[in-house]
């Protein structure tokens, strides 16, 4: 059960002046998995990725990629890594094909055939001859993905790869990631789109205020919280009452309902009845990643 670690960070920290952007992050990503990296804006995701890609010096801690330490001065391991971080870096005065040919010059195994292969893979074969400055955001994103795949990386690090893509494009990228994982490529996917992570990833980590607040299999993360929805006459008042219930994760009004986590349905009904509130309808469901994410980030 000791799968090979493809990314391993230990106590990774990065401060900008007094601001701790990343505060002791321990991550473990195993070979062949699609790993989701979640967190609200400003949680430290892109800073963490910057350190994994040798773009930033860690203030403390270590980052290992494919078994080798990575810092801005030690980047040899990154030759086997493909990355797309934020808006892709592209030369606007060159065509899509020429952008890839340029990158292929430093990748011995990425010949002309491989350039055409990745262009077809991301659905850009027809537009490959056009200059990039005329590309839409989605097309640039696809080209950035093609560039990341060009040298047949063992590890793919993607930060919001579906930005600017239409729903069909998003689905294509999800399928592509799954196919890559099936071929043995490890995918580290940072995304705001929780359903995307839920559908594409095997395991995930949730980052907030620079710290990992949860890490594990997506099914475990999802299953760790059961959500109870109670229909009540006054959801605000019911939420206030339930917030005082021992062990409650969150109690939030939502329309005619109040949503509660962290406690059993019986406890919720008992508590409300005790305060003279008669529940009209009680349903229990397994929490989806979005509710887990909201609960975790609000708690922390």
């Amino acid at each position: 059960m000791n799968a090979e670690a493809v990314i391993r960070t230990h106590g990774l920290r990065k401060s900008f002046g007094a601001v701790k952007a990343v505060d002791g992050v321990d991550l473990l990503v195993q070979r062949g998995e699609v790993f989701g990296f979640l967190g609200p804006n400003g949680a430290g995701k892109t800073t963490t990725i910057g350190m994994l890609l040798g773009l930033l010096h860690p203030t403390a801690g270590t980052a290992e990629v494919l078994g080798q330490p990575v810092t801005p001065g030690r980047t040899a391991a990154l030759r086997r890594v493909g990355a797309l971080v934020g808006a892709p870096g592209l030369y606007p005065y060159l065509s899509g094909r020429d952008n890839l040919r340029l990158l292929a010059r430093v990748s011995p195994d990425a010949g002309a055939g491989r350039v055409e292969e990745v262009l077809a893979l991301v659905g850009l074969a027809d537009a490959a001859g056009r200059k990039v400055k005329g590309y839409s955001t989605g097309m640039k994103q696809r080209l950035g993905l093609a560039a990341a795949l060009l040298h047949r990386p063992e590890l793919l690090i993607l930060d919001e790869p579906t930005n600017g893509l239409d729903p069909a494009g998003m689905r294509d990228v999800r399928e592509l990631l799954r196919n890559l994982a099936a071929d043995g490529v490890t995918v580290f996917l940072s995304s705001h789109l929780l359903h995307e992570v839920e559908q594409a990833c095997d395991r995930a980590a949730v980052l907030n205020h620079g710290r990992v607040i949860a890490q594990g299999a997506v099914s475990d993360l999802r299953g760790s919280e059961r959500l109870i929805k109670v229909r009540v006459p006054d959801p605000q008042a019911a939420a206030a009452v339930l917030a005082g219930l021992p062990g409650v994760g969150r109690a939030t009004p939502n329309g005619h309902y109040v949503e509660v986590s962290g406690v059993t349905g019986e406890a919720v009904v008992g508590c409300l009845s005790g305060h003279g509130i008669v529940p009209g309808e009680v349903t229990t469901s397994q929490g989806d990643l979005e509710s887990v994410f909201l609960a975790l980030t609000q708690e922390s």
Binding site: G54, T75, L78, A87, P88, G89, L90, Y91, V106
Partner: peptide
């Protein structure tokens, strides 16, 4: 401005 230096560095090219 184009963030293209990051692309090369992120591919293991020494700065």
């Amino acid at each position: 401005n184009w963030r293209t230096l990051h692309v090369w560095v992120g591919r293991g090219v020494p700065r």
